[in-house]
Design a protein around this nucleic acid. Structure first.
Length: 539
RNA sequence: GCGCUUGUAGCUCAGCUGGAUAGAGCGCUUCCCUCCUAAGGAAGAAGUCGGGCGUUCAAAUCGUCUCAAGCGCGCCA
């Protein structure tokens, strides 16, 4: 039983005994920052003092008389009316064996039977993955891992806009380079792609089929399909390097097949009207601030229309909710898409959009801008190789996505050994090293001999892990995991310095502490895995 | 002009369902390995939480006004 949840239930029961029925979610238990304030504290006496029409401290007194003291050592009233709980050590000590038994599954919630679709990256396969996509990739993947661990059934999805001009331009660009290889003069279109990767692709096609593409009746279709496949395979490789693997790749072309758009239009017909030759969707009837064009005067659909189909398609696959991880410049798009889904009867919160603020990459003290078109881009792979995947994953996960972020590449490269990720990894390596040296000592998983301040602080933090996972899942906030990891590493290092683990003259205590070391190692590894960071045995 | 996001220590950022002396990393000062990894620990200096007003027993947190930065406001995608 989770300690905080348990305390909430006790307080709820105490309040009920005093004649007040209170929602469990309105009872807030927080871990005390100061040891003098016990292990956990609550402000319920202050919060509900009005209900009793008494001073907060008097209410606190009434409450603590009714609280079930099972597992609690003592209770104190402090300050304006806080109730501080001092837990019996054995309720925390029990976590040692629990963690060791559950191992990789410690912190994992039971299946909730709720399906969530997380769409992220979704860069068009027209070039190598730009490093700007890294933050979204790290956040999207970490959210997926956290949700899975918290008991949701997660599908990681990648959407390819392969029906528009970008892919055509890609094909024309490759075709031009391909023709160049045969001495034929050809120009890359103005809004085409001129990077080295395009030349490489042309060369690989020549190596494979020689001059056959010169003789094709519809070479552009061939270059489209071939070019996209090669580009997408490279992206998948780069993402794999970044420890990201999507479950489903959806193509706009496939979504649009079988007159899906026309069928969707028919469904939406009550919300559609014509004006100035264009077709509008009445999104303002829901939560958008104005109506949106879905079909232009020339008969083409806007980007929005197939995107509605795509989101409806996702929902038709049985998801309870869907998450889009998007760049912050897409924020204007959220309410129109939610409105479209609401036309289908889905509640407003069915779609959650996680906006990722831009990252500015700084190199040599200057903003480092790059463009796929110009072919001088810094790619995701480049930075992974320079800085390391662990550092990048941790670095991006540890910041709230809504904050603007400067990524100083020089600093990240120069001071890689000072990067915060190493602090956590070092703690893990240390724990592994101790376990290795104490492998002949019998572990005591009872936790009974653990009572030093640094031991208890560590145990309390280990016990808190399942709460942190649920909280991170609720808020879709990977940085809550890295905050937890950092605090855990701190406690591990402090424990290491205060408590000698292996002592041949006191094998009982050694066995007890080794069990704590093992439990800490398990939790650290589980937590790091949630943000896609490795837990090395040696450093 | 309207909207979204952001403004917390020298730098990069947590904290914001209101709560007890505002936190971390880097940088700075001073200590700590005859002993399990010093990529570590202990202590310290450093902050008008952009600014004003308001709500409250209590505001970095809520409301409002204001200043500053980024981004959106397309029959682009």
């Amino acid at each position: 039983m989770d300690i905080i949840e348990n305390l909430k239930l006790k307080l709820q029961a105490a309040l009920l005994a005093l004649g007040q029925e209170v929602n469990l979610n309105d009872i807030i238990i927080e871990k005390s920052k100061d040891e003098a304030h016990g292990d956990y504290a609550t402000n319920v006496a202050m919060k509900f003092s009005r209900l009793f029409a008494k001073a907060p401290r008097d209410v606190a007194n009434m409450i603590i008389e009714k609280v079930d003291m099972e597992g609690i050592d003592k209770v104190e009233i402090a300050g304006p009316g806080f109730i501080n709980f001092f837990m019996k050590h054995d309720s925390l000590q029990a976590f040692v064996s629990k963690i060791i038994n559950e191992e990789d599954n410690y912190g994992r919630s039971p299946r909730k039977n709720l399906k969530i679709n997380v769409e992220f990256v979704s860069a068009n396969p027209t070039g190598l993955l730009h490093v700007g996509t890294a933050r979204g990739a790290a956040i999207g993947d970490s959210i997926s891992r956290i949700l899975d661990f918290a008991g949701y059934d997660v599908t990681k999805e990648y959407y390819i806009n392969d029906a528009g001009n970008q892919i055509t331009n890609l094909a024309l660009s490759i075709q031009a380079r391909y023709q160049n290889l045969f001495g034929i003069e050809a120009e890359i279109p103005a809004d085409g792609y001129a990077g080295q990767d395009i030349t490489d692709i042309a060369q690989s096609i020549k190596d494979e089929i020689g001059d056959e593409a010169l003789k094709m009746s519809d070479p552009v279709a061939y270059f489209k399909e071939k070019g996209m496949k090669i580009e997408l395979d490279r992206i998948i490789d780069d993402l794999a390097l970044f420890r990201v693997k999507h479950d489903v790749f959806s193509s706009e072309k496939a979504i649009r097949a079988n007159n899906a758009i026309e069928k969707e239009l028919e469904f939406l017909k009550d919300y559609v009207y014509e004006q100035d030759d264009a077709l509008y969707l009445k999104t303002s009837a829901f939560i958008d601030d104005k109506d949106r064009v879905i079909r232009k005067g020339n008969g083409d659909y806007t980007y929005f229309m197939p995107d509605i189909c795509y989101h409806v398609n996702k929902m038709s696959r049985g998801f309870d909710s869907i998450i889009d991880v998007l760049g912050a410049d897409h924020h204007g798009y959220i309410n129109r898409m939610k409105s479209a889904l609401m036309m289908h009867g889905y509640p407003e919160d069915t779609l959650h959009v996680e906006l990722i603020q831009m990252v500015r990459f700084l190199k040599n003290g200057q903003e480092y801008k790059a463009s796929k078109r110009r072919g001088d881009a810094i790619t995701l792979r480049d930075v992974c190789e320079e800085v390391g995947v662990d550092a990048m994953r941790y670095f991006f996960a540890m910041r709230a996505p809504s904050s603007h972020l400067d990524f100083d590449m020089d600093l990240a490269i120069e001071q890689s050994s000072n990067n915060p990720v190493y602090y956590a990894q070092y703690a893990h390596a240390r724990l592994c090293s101790i376990l290795e040296q104490g492998k002949d000592i019998r572990l005591d998983e009872s936790g009974k001999l653990l009572n030093q301040p640094s031991e208890m602080a560590l145990l309390k933090h280990l016990a808190d892990f399942p709460n942190v996972v649920n909280d991170a899942a609720k808020d879709k906030a990977p940085y809550k995991i890295t905050n937890y990891v950092h605090a855990l590493a701190e406690l591990v290092h402090a424990f290491y310095n205060e408590c000698r683990v292996i002592d041949q003259n006191n094998l009982e205590l050694s066995g007890s502490r080794l069990a704590l070391v093992k439990a800490s190692k398990i939790v650290l590894k589980n937590a790091l895995a949630l943000v896609g960071v490795s837990a090395p045995i040696h450093m």
